[in-house]
Design a binder for these strands. Sequence first.
DNA 1: TTGCGTGAATGAAAGCTTTCAATTCAAGCT
DNA 2: AGCTTGAATTGAAAGCTTTCATTCACGCAA
Lengths: 344, 344
Amino acid sequence: MANMKEIARIAGVSLGTVSHVLNGSATVREPLRKRVMDAVNSLGYQPSQLARGLRRDKTNMIGMIIPDVTNPFFPAVVRGAEDVAFANGYRLVLCNTDNDHAKEIAHLNELRTYLPSGLIVIPSSFSDLTVQAEYYRKSGAAVVCVDRLPKDWDGDSVTADNEHGAYEATNYLLRQGHQQLAIITGPRHLTNAQQRLKGFKRALQEKKLHINPEYIQEASFDRHGGYAKTLLLLNMIPRPTVIFAGNDMIAFGALLAFRQAGVRCPEDISLIGFDDLDLAEMTSPPLSSVSQPGYQMGTTAASILVERVRGDHGPAKHVVLKTALKVRDSVISPNRATSKKQRK
Amino acid sequence: MANMKEIARIAGVSLGTVSHVLNGSATVREPLRKRVMDAVNSLGYQPSQLARGLRRDKTNMIGMIIPDVTNPFFPAVVRGAEDVAFANGYRLVLCNTDNDHAKEIAHLNELRTYLPSGLIVIPSSFSDLTVQAEYYRKSGAAVVCVDRLPKDWDGDSVTADNEHGAYEATNYLLRQGHQQLAIITGPRHLTNAQQRLKGFKRALQEKKLHINPEYIQEASFDRHGGYAKTLLLLNMIPRPTVIFAGNDMIAFGALLAFRQAGVRCPEDISLIGFDDLDLAEMTSPPLSSVSQPGYQMGTTAASILVERVRGDHGPAKHVVLKTALKVRDSVISPNRATSKKQRK
DNA sequence: TTGCGTGAATGAAAGCTTTCAATTCAAGCT
DNA sequence: AGCTTGAATTGAAAGCTTTCATTCACGCAA
């Protein structure tokens, strides 16, 4: 399509002037400005972001790396980030890693050569992220980590208060009278999974409850993992009276396993999740869950990023957002559960 | 970071040679090749995709435009497209339009100046897409439309057999004995919504059933729309015995409305959806739905795109994928429903 | 020995924009 | 009228890569 040279020719001005008009980088007098704009409009000219980026050493892209588009929690974050980014003239380039280390590296490496203004990462593997982030910063791009962090992460971050959320939820379970609590954590190398487990354990320890190590199972953060580990837990003797799922996808898997095994929820076993996806209230039974503000995590991350790009060089920000327990119908007291059973 | 000049200097060769090594664009003898690769590796050099794109008039990006990341159907398509694109060395740049016309235009306009190799669109508004697609093609980018098409779309497309899927599902409802069928269609300007309605009507007409125009409601393809229109339908006299939801998100909204109104599903009213999202089997009751292969739509679209980029100039392809009726528990015969009620 | 052909390597141009130093211009002042 | 000043405009370089026309070197045939 048309390029600046063409515009300059038609408007009868120099390339520099066209550029100044387009970017407001210098005052150009009205008649000239108008001539340039007329040419631009008549040709439907749009500056090449490629050339612009090459020259400016920076594009209006913001890279966003997420582990799995199909876990609805992440799209929620994406949507938040995109709203803020778009409103500020940035475009989100979404990269899906499928929880695949190699894919994450590949995306990080290549994305950088597109000179994005920034990077929002929900990491799935950590080994290289810290060094990669350094490269990005060196090339002038800001980096914000969301949801989970590399162990020694010292950059900006936006997370939920995972430990407290899990702690509160566990206390709720204890108040209901549960004593045999099982948990299916997400992958143990992920900090959010760690923190949730920590909150869970802390609540139990405060009540001096013994924790059966077999009741702590690790799974990938998806339905598949939840399904398999739930079947495992259901076969244990004694069987736990409640399962704390590391996230809602795991909880959904658990529900499937319940159905498969002919176990009723909550009559035979209680279940609680984490994330409070939109769909948690639609399941059978409606799933109690710890809600974390995915959309807001996205907007917050993008806002921090935009400020950094605009020159904020303050110390690293660590925003921790509140969680909230959503009580629905998937948890009942184990006593009530027993009595119901006996009634039959 | 390092650039080609640096590599050339270190390896003691010309820029052209470095380029040839990197791209295999000409044979270069082993010793030289090795010197170049050593320099590349020692510096961790990665070619600037910006400069490369500028020079080649094409980048390895594939733009993908979707209406709403938070409707799980779209991420499924995205995942399919991404898998194929990534495997072929292309990177998916995801743009979310939020069903917002202006945003769609903005993305289309700007994306083009990044010179992507191709564009996969699930359109939310059509007026400009046909002309925009022309621009893209002129700049050498292939365009594939997915899921819904502009009226006069003559380019490549991948869709589901919406009409047949809806026709089959409606026949199933009729076989169950339903006579008062309502439908909540998606936005009527979207071809997939139109086709589903068409299939629905055809099935009714074949059975010589009168269609009450009030029983045909239009809503946005989300929970919100489904919720509102369901409340409307529930208050009609006579009340329909089944609601055909234009997609699963609408069906989810309907379930919420049922709960809100104290109406039991399927005892008091039946419900069927379209899409068969992963979560359809988890709802209460498990939702019967017309399944369409989202992931496969993505892979197909990306495959077509890749072939086009590689030089396939054959006639436009119109792939129509099969749907399949998934029977679960949200539909029962209205007679059984009545008898149940009477038993109480 | 000369000339030719082939394969390998080089150098320069091109792609489109931004930016900065330099130039032009008009106006204001003495 | 001549000079200064500041603003408006221009021109050229730079950013990094690919590509293509050249050059170079070497072996072989005449």
